[in-house]
Simulated assay, not measured.
Amino acid sequence: MKKSQQKIKPIKRRKSHLRPGTIFLLLLVFVVAGSSAWQLWKLHVSVEQQITQLTQEKEDLVKQENSLHEEIAQLNTPSYIEQLAREQLGLVKHGEILISPKN
């Protein structure tokens, strides 16, 4: 038996060359992705500012609501109703005499 001598051929590797069109296309994709990411970031910051502003407005409105509830409670007390009747309407209790200055 004879050994046949076979030559082992080395595998030729292709050199990967990036064509200018491919480079341009990749660059375009990165620019579009970066621009989109920047727009999303700006939108995120804007939304966060609006949330902060609306939260502050909500706190102010809650304080205003609480003060209005306190005012309603005060207006419904008999002593305050009597005070308003005396001052604004000039009413007097039974047996009292109203003394008012001349205008």
Results as ranks from 00 to 15, higher is better:
residue 4 S to E: 07
residue 87 E to D: 15
residue 70 E to K: 11
residue 39 Q to C: 05
residue 39 Q to R: 05
residue 90 G to I: 00
residue 78 P to D: 13
residue 37 A to R: 05
residue 90 G to R: 02
residue 16 S to W: 12
residue 46 S to P: 01
residue 56 Q to W: 07
residue 16 S to N: 12
residue 48 E to V: 00
residue 68 L to I: 03
residue 74 Q to Y: 08
residue 92 V to Y: 07
residue 31 V to I: 07
residue 17 H to R: 15
residue 2 K to C: 06
residue 1 M to S: 10
residue 71 E to I: 12
residue 87 E to I: 12
residue 39 Q to P: 00
residue 44 H to S: 14
residue 5 Q to V: 15
residue 46 S to R: 10
residue 6 Q to F: 13
residue 53 Q to T: 13
residue 57 E to S: 12
residue 48 E to F: 04
residue 13 R to L: 12
residue 26 L to A: 12
residue 40 L to C: 06
residue 50 Q to H: 06
residue 54 L to P: 00
residue 46 S to Q: 14
residue 24 F to I: 11
residue 42 K to I: 08
residue 58 K to I: 11
residue 93 K to A: 15
residue 37 A to F: 14
residue 90 G to A: 02
residue 82 E to G: 09
residue 72 I to V: 06
residue 48 E to T: 01
residue 93 K to R: 14
residue 50 Q to D: 11
residue 64 Q to S: 14
residue 21 G to S: 06
residue 24 F to T: 13
residue 91 L to H: 06
residue 74 Q to R: 14
residue 30 F to E: 05
residue 54 L to S: 09
residue 26 L to F: 10
residue 41 W to Q: 09
residue 2 K to Q: 09
residue 62 V to N: 04
residue 3 K to P: 03
residue 79 S to V: 04
residue 77 T to G: 00
residue 98 L to F: 10
residue 65 E to I: 14
residue 45 V to Q: 12
residue 74 Q to I: 11
residue 50 Q to W: 02
residue 29 V to Q: 09
residue 97 I to F: 01
residue 100 S to C: 09
residue 61 L to S: 07
residue 80 Y to I: 14
residue 7 K to H: 06
residue 53 Q to M: 10
residue 98 L to G: 05
residue 59 E to I: 15
residue 37 A to Q: 07
residue 53 Q to N: 12
residue 33 A to V: 14
residue 81 I to N: 06
residue 76 N to E: 14
residue 81 I to C: 02
residue 83 Q to Y: 14
residue 53 Q to A: 14
residue 43 L to S: 14
residue 5 Q to T: 15
residue 85 A to L: 11
residue 86 R to G: 05
residue 90 G to M: 03
residue 8 I to K: 01
residue 33 A to P: 01
residue 10 P to M: 03
residue 4 S to T: 11
residue 12 K to W: 00
residue 30 F to Q: 09
residue 14 R to C: 04
residue 38 W to G: 08
residue 38 W to L: 13
residue 77 T to F: 01
residue 41 W to D: 08
residue 68 L to V: 01
residue 17 H to V: 15
residue 92 V to R: 14
residue 37 A to I: 07
residue 81 I to A: 13
residue 103 N to Q: 08
residue 19 R to W: 04
residue 7 K to C: 05
residue 29 V to S: 10
residue 6 Q to D: 11
residue 90 G to S: 08
residue 26 L to R: 10
residue 10 P to T: 08
residue 45 V to E: 12
